[in-house]
Design a protein around this nucleic acid. Structure first.
Lengths: 218, 218
DNA sequence: AGGGTGCAGCGTACGCTGTACGTTGTCAAG
DNA sequence: CTTGACAACGTACAGCGTACGCTGCACCCT
């Protein structure tokens, strides 16, 4: 009876795989090495099982990737109902961004796979806050996209330069070497403004600009 | 002498490959079947050459992909110097979006590869317009990102649902089937607003909202 | 005119990928 | 004790990117 709860396992072997274990290992692997580093074989190796054992728990690699991004969506806390609506939208955007920063491989997949259940909850939550914000329905509709696009677009753009994690400086250096300050002074200056480190505040600043615009529109 | 200009070719065979031909074929192939459909083997087959012949003109597949996105950047016309600055920014954003609509496979690559020469021109052009817009330098810096993120983020998000080209309806149907109107009424309603067709105007509307916000900020 | 050189095209081969299929061993239920 | 379900596994296949070495043509220099 209590045994029933216990996963059944063969006596000689370790406890069998299950879906959640596979998913967790895949997320960990992607966090460490990016999406490109995740292959079914490497994943199975790390878990100590044969490749095809994974397919007893996951229909295909595509399904696994979809589960992974849904797991990231699940990490975003629901909007705080105690906050004024637009403040809740703002906080929700920051929380979403934080999840993307923890899992830099997620934004591209987020765009490519259809939303799973967790992501639908994420959508519904944002739409609900917008609905009680006093914005007229059409503005709310556009606001949903404006906020989402900003969060995803910004994070994507930023991490394209910085992933895998530590070669940011290398990539910037390679890039700068390919651009002449004579013919493209503004581009070079722009990159140097980033090296000055004001990147982080830019996300919130543009977000506020969008939110203000929505509110003013009514 | 005139012969010198003529590409040298072997008498029995067709004119040899060159970099531009490979690039053009790759772009055409991606337009038709998406990035996933482009493999070096298939590309070589279509050109009537052996696989390894391609590598005489392109260092690697990654380089080829980078060239492809740079080719898309080259399609964006430079901002019209006759326009008032912010109107030119707006037009440039629309032109960039148009190029992405013609080549739906481009936005993800745009984010993943370092900018090539054409894309650097694209950056410099936008920065130049912003520089003569009267915005203060910090606002201009943020405006560059705000506009870029909107263009890329919006197009990416939109085409994630619609690519390959014709199965938009299918994907929407599959998605709607997975969402209950009881538990997620706002999500379902939001999707139906899209089916009503106001998607296209949303891009420009949010763009204007961002541009207004920048101008007001000074 | 003849020899040398460089380079485009090519064939082969390697290591990697996702996954279809069939077998095996162990459990729980009848 | 038998039976059925099912997780794990081994094998195999088609496809990928690309390193390497060979071949033969077109040119340049003598």
């Amino acid at each position: 009876m209590a045994r029933r709860e216990e996963a059944r396992h063969r006596p000689g072997g370790r406890t069998p795989l299950d879906r959640a274990t596979v998913l967790a290992a895949a997320v960990a692997m992607a966090d460490a090495e990016g999406t490109a580093g995740v292959s079914m074989r490497r994943l199975a190796d790390r878990l100590g099982f044969a490749v095809m054992a994974l397919y007893n728990h996951v229909r295909s690699k595509d399904e696994l990737l979809a589960l992974m991004v849904d797991a990231v969506a699940a990490e975003v806390p629901p909007p705080d109902p105690g906050l004024p609506p637009m403040a809740a939208v703002r906080a929700h955007a920051l929380d979403t961004r934080a999840a993307f920063v923890r899992h830099p491989w997620a934004p591209p997949l987020w765009l490519e796979s259809l939303p799973g259940p967790e992501r639908v909850d994420h959508m519904e939550a944002l739409l609900a806050v917008l609905a009680r914000s006093g914005l007229d329905p059409e503005t709310a509709h556009h606001g949903f996209h404006a906020v989402n696009n900003h969060v995803i677009g910004y994070t994507l753009q930023e991490q394209a330069m910085a992933f895998p994690a530590d070669d940011l400086a290398d990539r910037v250096a390679v890039f700068l070497a390919s651009v002449s300050a004579d013919t493209h002074p503004l581009t070079v200056a722009h990159v140097h403004e980033h090296l000055g480190g004001r990147t982080e505040s830019s996300f919130e600043l543009v977000l506020d600009l969008i939110l203000d615009g929505l509110v003013r529109r009514g």
